[in-house]
């Protein structure tokens, strides 16, 4: 309880300090450069000055925090990748040569590529299918809500849930993992799913697909509802059947949204870490870049240089999406 009280007080203090900054800095600006009850020329001058300063009062904390937490680290990671394990002695490209020479890197790179292909595709596909079908049935909203639910579950929680699906008992013991129970029911032999090389990757990916399908579904469902009914009615009058309408009329109209969903999930996949950590910790050929990086940060006291190199690889993979996003945002703003 003592901790709860301290937590509560710190919470309130933190939030108040934040609010006080905004209130105080604005009041101060108004005090130094008053915009009222002064001769017109002075008001005009004061306003010109304070209008130039005020945006930066509003933006100040955000810019500072973004710089410290995201911008500076990107630059520093780049620097660290040329330094040794403590980040002090310069080692040139040796971290890079180590990385490109290591088996583990190729394994995690290959696995990351598998994740990148499989997860966004499967999640977007299921999302689109479910969005299309649930729009036509009366209990569609309940169905959507249930399929959306895994979004709220932590990766680690999801891992426990799925461990329970993939659980394996040898030989004649009753299986308590659902998947093996089904296999046995149909006369097959139970399998230790998460240790089967290569295929175990897919069993891990299914967990993320399970989580992300709801996200794809919600967004695609809104996009589908945004399609003007007239275009579909026109297609019906033109004699198109359901499948043709779906692929030739509906899907082309929501391409933009499908691309957004796809890239959002792709970014998430690049950062995926918790699931692998909890399910296998990279054993049995399931290593991915993010987990490898985390590993190197702490393994044997941590090797900052090697961790940073892996981080740089992840960053490089993200850059195309970043460029595409900025272009899209710019185009949108010009449209306004």
């Amino acid at each position: 309880m003592g901790q709860l009280a301290t937590a509560l007080v710190t919470m309130i203090l933190g939030v108040l300090a934040c609010a006080a900054y905004f209130y105080g800095s604005n009041a101060l600006l108004d005090l130094i450069f008053p915009g009222k009850n002064r001769p017109a020329s002075e008001i005009a001058r004061n306003l010109r000055i304070s209008n130039r300063i005020r945006p930066w009062l509003f933006l100040g904390p955000a810019v500072l925090i973004l710089t410290f937490y995201l911008f500076y680290p990107v630059v520093d990671s780049l620097r660290l990748s040329f330094f040794g394990r403590t980040g002090e002695e310069f080692v040139g490209l040796s971290n890079y040569t180590w990385l490109f020479g290591s088996e583990e890197f190729y394994e995690s790179f290959r696995n990351n590529m598998l994740w990148l292909i499989f997860v966004p595709t499967a999640a977007t596909f299921f999302g689109l299918v479910i969005a299309t079908m649930t729009d036509r049935i009366w209990w569609g909203n309940i169905a959507k809500s249930l399929i959306f639910m895994p979004m709220a579950i932590s990766f680690i929680g999801a891992s426990v849930i799925w461990k329970f699906i993939y659980d394996y008992r040898s030989g004649g013991d009753p299986q308590i993992g659902l998947l093996n129970a089904i296999v046995v029911f149909f006369g097959g032999d139970p399998q230790p799913w998460i240790t089967i090389p290569f295929w175990n990757n897919f069993f891990l990916m299914i967990i993320l697909v399970w989580i992300q399908t709801g996200f794809a579904m919600v967004i695609l469902s809104a996009a589908l509802r945004g399609i003007p009914d007239e275009t579909i009615e026109a297609a019906v009058l033109d004699g198109a059947n359901g499948v043709q309408i779906f692929f030739k009329i509906m899907v082309p109209q929501i391409w933009g949204t499908i691309a957004v969903v796809w890239t959002t999930i792709t970014i998430l996949v690049l950062k995926v870490f918790d699931i692998v950590l909890a399910m296998t910790n990279g054993q049995w050929g399931t290593q991915v870049l993010a987990n490898q990086m985390f590993d190197w940060m702490f393994r044997g006291g941590g090797d900052f240089g090697r961790g940073a190199v892996v981080a740089i690889v992840i960053m490089v993979l993200v850059i195309p999406i970043m460029v595409w996003n900025i272009k899209r945002a710019n185009a949108e703003m010009e449209g306004r």
């Binding site: 911008f71 950062k271 981080a311 970043m322």
Partner: peptide
């Protein structure tokens, strides 16, 4: 600044961990 925010949207937070 707006472009920077959109760009930072996709920076993998793993990048930040070591320097931070």
């Amino acid at each position: 600044l707006i472009a920077a925010v959109v760009g930072l949207l996709v920076v993998p937070l793993q990048m930040s961990l070591i320097p931070l």
